[in-house]
Design a protein around this nucleic acid. Structure first.
Length: 261
DNA sequence: ATGGTCGGTCCCCGA
């Protein structure tokens, strides 16, 4: 069972790249972020034609998340609980029916960027993380197979970026953000990639600007967080750098894990 | 080499 996450930076602009990667990588589930379309414009038929059902929480121009799955999707939850007035489409959750008595619960998360730090964008990020911590607590009580994956916009440690000096004053690396990410992890979640890898300076995002990709100036901000029940089945987790090097690439590249299921 | 990015869109904003 292979589960992947990918911030595609527009599902419309990236459709050929996504279709090609699905064909090559054959994930059972793909969590998408920054689809940048309203629900009606999500290319569900294109994905359906290669065997994927979809659940979508779209938004015009900005944000937007979705879940693609080969297996049936049930129990779709739209939006992160805790703020009825939040209008940004950054969270979708569903159950994937693996067999008649086994379910996998997955969420596709596009955590706010939070820059610039002195603005309400940063406090929105903090509040959003606290809502996520609170919701994750509720989910973990179910003791199910759960994967909370997506673009967290969090650099967990200095080892996960090319230059800690630059990033420690950025909303992606600030201590308040890292500590809340650790609080989330400490609820009992396993960050899949780091749990299996000791390498440093391995990234999932490279800015379009200033030749960041060519210079390997990246950050590791896309994560798969596993409940204990899922972590027990974790076999492998990798970052697939290939899509980032292709033409018309997203600035993020897919991260995937395999569960013994 | 004093400029070097995308995508979506209320031609500037968000990343």
């Amino acid at each position: 069972m292979k589960i992947a996450t990918w911030n595609v930076n527009s599902v419309k602009a990236r459709l050929p790249n996504i279709i090609e990667w699905l064909r090559l990588a054959q994930p059972d589930v793909l969590l998408l972020q920054e689809i940048k379309v309203i629900d009606e414009n999500f290319p569900s038929f294109d994905f359906q034609s290669i065997g994927y059902s979809s659940a979508v929480h779209g938004q015009k121009a900005y944000n937007g998340v979705a879940i693609l799955s080969k297996k049936p999707i049930t129990e779709i939850r739209i939006g992160l609980p805790g703020d009825e007035k939040d209008e940004q489409s950054r969270y979708i959750e569903c159950c994937i029916n693996l067999s008649k008595n086994i379910n996998l619960r997955v969420a596709s998360i596009y955590l706010p960027n939070g820059n610039p730090v002195e603005t309400d964008k940063f406090s929105y990020k903090i509040r959003w993380m606290e809502r996520l911590i609170s919701h994750a607590k509720t989910l973990l009580e179910k003791e199910e197979l759960i994967i909370l994956g997506g673009d967290y916009n969090v650099i967990p440690s200095d080892y996960d970026c090319y230059d800690p000096i630059i990033w420690k004053d950025d909303a992606l690396g600030r201590p308040e953000i890292r500590s809340r990410f650790r609080t989330l992890i400490n609820l009992g979640l396993t960050e899949a990639w780091r749990s299996l890898h000791r390498e440093t300076h391995v990234y999932s995002f490279w800015d379009y600007q200033a030749g960041a990709w060519q210079k390997d100036n990246g950050v590791r901000i896309d994560h798969l967080l596993l409940s204990p029940q899922a972590a027990d089945l974790l076999e492998n987790c990798e970052i697939d750098k290939n899509p980032r090097g292709q033409k018309k690439a997203s600035d993020h590249t897919p991260v995937w894990c395999e569960l013994r299921l």
